[in-house]
Design a protein around this nucleic acid. Sequence first.
DNA 1: GTTCTTGTTGCTCAACGGTCTCCCACGTCC
DNA 2: GGACGTGGGAGACCGTTGAGCAACAAGAAC
Lengths: 347, 347
Amino acid sequence: MSNKNVGIKDVAFAAGVSVTTVSHVLNDVSYARISPETRDKVKSVAEQLGYGPNRLAQALRTQRTGMLGLVSEDIATTPHAGRIILGADEAARARGYNLMIINTSGNASPESREADVEALLERRVDGILYATMYHRHIQVPSNLGGVPAVLVDAVSTGGSVTAVVPDEEGGARAAVGCLLAAGHTRIGFLNNTDDVPATRDRLRGFRATLTEAGLDGGAAPVESEPSEVQGGYEAARRILARPGRPTGLFCYNDRMAMGAYRAAAELGLSIPGDLSVVGFDDQELIAANLHPGLTTVALPHYEMGAWATQNLIDAIEGKADLGLMALRPTVLDCPVVVRDSVAAPPL
Amino acid sequence: MSNKNVGIKDVAFAAGVSVTTVSHVLNDVSYARISPETRDKVKSVAEQLGYGPNRLAQALRTQRTGMLGLVSEDIATTPHAGRIILGADEAARARGYNLMIINTSGNASPESREADVEALLERRVDGILYATMYHRHIQVPSNLGGVPAVLVDAVSTGGSVTAVVPDEEGGARAAVGCLLAAGHTRIGFLNNTDDVPATRDRLRGFRATLTEAGLDGGAAPVESEPSEVQGGYEAARRILARPGRPTGLFCYNDRMAMGAYRAAAELGLSIPGDLSVVGFDDQELIAANLHPGLTTVALPHYEMGAWATQNLIDAIEGKADLGLMALRPTVLDCPVVVRDSVAAPPL
DNA sequence: GTTCTTGTTGCTCAACGGTCTCCCACGTCC
DNA sequence: GGACGTGGGAGACCGTTGAGCAACAAGAAC
């Protein structure tokens, strides 16, 4: 079935030709002039010997490994990393590349991060994907400069590395738009307390969308808590206790929305009858399994992984210029995933 | 900071010695007799040139890549794959190896699976980890035989490949034991309908533990549904409607437990006051975020990944014999993770 | 004093398994 | 009988490793 220890010279010997010829035939070298008979002979012999090229040797000679390094943070703690990996893997395979993955911790030291990149460099990967587990600004390892590189879900503080991030503000706009379209006018936002791009951008999108709809975005109720279930619960309790209680809630993420569900249940508010809720992140385990299903905004992790990989490969193959792209991070859409948590406001 | 294109011969030239000497010094070759001065010279030159070995060339020469292939199913759909990857990555790095990851679909064709393994083989990985996304019996790709291999969360139908799987029955015993210890005597099981090892083994553990506790395990109530939230809900509705309603529920997984929570809420049963619930899988997103927190049984994905990797490396390095280990799959513990969903039964 | 040993220290050279740039041999055609 | 077309081979090279050898100095034997 497979290679093993048969090399190109075994094929050459068995076919009665030189290794050069075998190489030319198997690689379809354009300038090689070889008779059809010889070609067939070589191919069939290679096939039946189960010859498979030794990519190491190829790489050594051609200075191309066909491998992409992916350093990802906290692979196991969120499903996000998995989606990035999947997007990257599929895009890579489609173009004949493979992925070498290295896991790093969100709070790893700069030295350890450099060591991670170094390991990839020693293996002579053709390019590096550097992914964080949530959208943020990072200081890239200094040795990342050696090969083409793309940041996924992160932007470099120096701004000198090509990056792809989600359109946080656009996602927030879509979420609020969803509530607006259902007829809500009293809309609140359960925000995160961390000072990260998502916090700021989603808030901006929230207010702007309301304002553009003729409401007073600046005065719209916002409650902030740590972005976990408990925080969502507490923020929801507070926001729902306000006079002129909101009928629609936009939540920073699905976990906070989960907390809001509980708060609503405790207050005897039914979703979506009395209260409409929109989340963010589309963590399937939560969003799809809550009752009713949570309408939320999806983060394009798969797409970011794929986009980064495609452009990285383009750069490697000289079809694109990462330097140019590094000027502005590329922003990818956050589409709304409609489930059952939004309805018209109560009369 | 780093290598790039500086090779061993650049170091040799700069240090005024031969490449052999550099190689010997840098690899601490035991039988090489080289003066301390020369050693220092070489090391410092290498350091300041930012020399890093070319692992490709090393691998070509030594026939050892220091890379492990990991083919995993559906990386993005469950967090499980992430934990396996993490366990494998950490174990691999601890021993100087790196991981090449290939994603495959749970329902990929045998040909495509062989192609995945083939890709790994072409890159001359030293060994292969083959992981599935849930415990099951599989037909391993026929070309897997070429290198040392270990199955993770799966056993080969032929039984000829070393494998590591969770102790399903033990986990079920622990879960039921937990309920028993809290004083429950009327305990029900919400089982899965799929015919997989987990379904059978957990049921066996459930009944056996009850019987051993002096209860009638054979007659204990069991309701089966697809292992999703909705299935859990329905099975719970049925089991809670039975005469002599159970006060403790063991659920096939956390998703079904989530459904049970809803059923309980609808019936006005409070958890854990009126009903105690134990899940399985420890999907943090669910288990930790449900209210009250779900006591559940953890699947040792991280541990399986690490175990598989350590033993694979041992085999590669000749310190272990996979053939021997293949006789019986290794079974790893499923520990109970205690949260707040179990209490004494109502009076 | 010359030739042997014996130790030191480091170098030479052939792999590893490919790719790729010349180069060659042999027709054939005017 | 030179130019050209056709089919294919030789051999250097990619960056390392490792077995074996070479060079040299110091002490021993004659």
